[in-house]
């Protein structure tokens, strides 16, 4: 464990709970893409199948349980409890256009052709594009609530911190995973446009609104 990965994991945890609290407190999921949340739930479920078979540490197991539970809870709040506030008219990204190609790629490009490894690879590839429905929804509505932009900033920062973690681990531990690094770069690059808007607008107390 290193500081980049620890802060990255905490940033990820913060993002998930900021979103969960926003929906719970405001009793509304306006402006939030349910499709992205479904993809994130799929990412965690396919990645953490080794939860009971491969014990790493209390921290590792605890975080896996929290990530799965909080994301499933978010999907539940969006599609069941506060379904009436779900903005399906703007959450129209065709996620099958993400899941199918990512699934095919996981079969073709992986470290080891075994079910658990292919599912892990699928999860890594899917996570790199899972935010697209959310970014697409913001581009359609033309703006995002401030709390939603904080959610996105924390979520985008987590994988950017993981990139620093992989640089650290490469030089100090000789650890390198090309699949995770490439997917992590794609994932972080997708946030660049948002990071620019967040830093130039939200940081100065303005609302995040995309140029019309």
């Amino acid at each position: 464990m290193n500081i980049f990965r620890l802060v990255g994991d905490l940033s990820h945890l913060l993002a998930i709970f900021v979103l969960l609290l926003k929906i719970w407190k405001s009793r509304s999921c306006a402006g939030v893409s349910g499709k992205s949340q479904i993809l994130f739930a799929l990412v965690f479920i396919t990645r953490y199948l080794d939860l009971f078979t491969n014990f790493i540490s209390v921290y590792n197991s605890l975080m896996k349980v929290i990530f799965i539970a909080s994301t499933v809870a978010t999907v539940y709040l969006m599609y069941i409890k506060f379904k009436a506030t779900y903005d399906s008219n703007h959450d129209t990204f065709r996620i099958e256009f993400l899941v199918v190609p990512v699934g095919g790629l996981a079969f073709l490009v992986n470290h080891d052709f075994t079910p658990l490894e292919i599912l892990w690879t699928f999860s890594i590839y899917l996570e790199s594009v899972a935010i697209l429905p959310q970014l697409f929804m913001i581009s359609k509505t033309g703006e995002a609530e401030t709390i939603t932009s904080h959610y996105l900033f924390a979520l985008g920062s987590y994988r950017a911190l993981y990139l620093l973690n992989w640089i650290y681990r490469y030089y100090f531990e000789g650890y390198f995973d090309l699949i995770a690094v490439v997917a992590g770069c794609v994932q972080t690059i997708l946030y660049c446009d948002f990071f620019y808007l967040y830093i130039t607008k939200v940081m100065w107390g303005k609302k995040l609104s995309l140029p019309a």
Partner: peptide, 10 residues
């Protein structure tokens, strides 16, 4: 990856 196959990251 160059390290053991152990997946120790979240």
């Amino acid at each position: 990856q160059m390290s053991s196959g152990q997946k120790d990251e979240l």
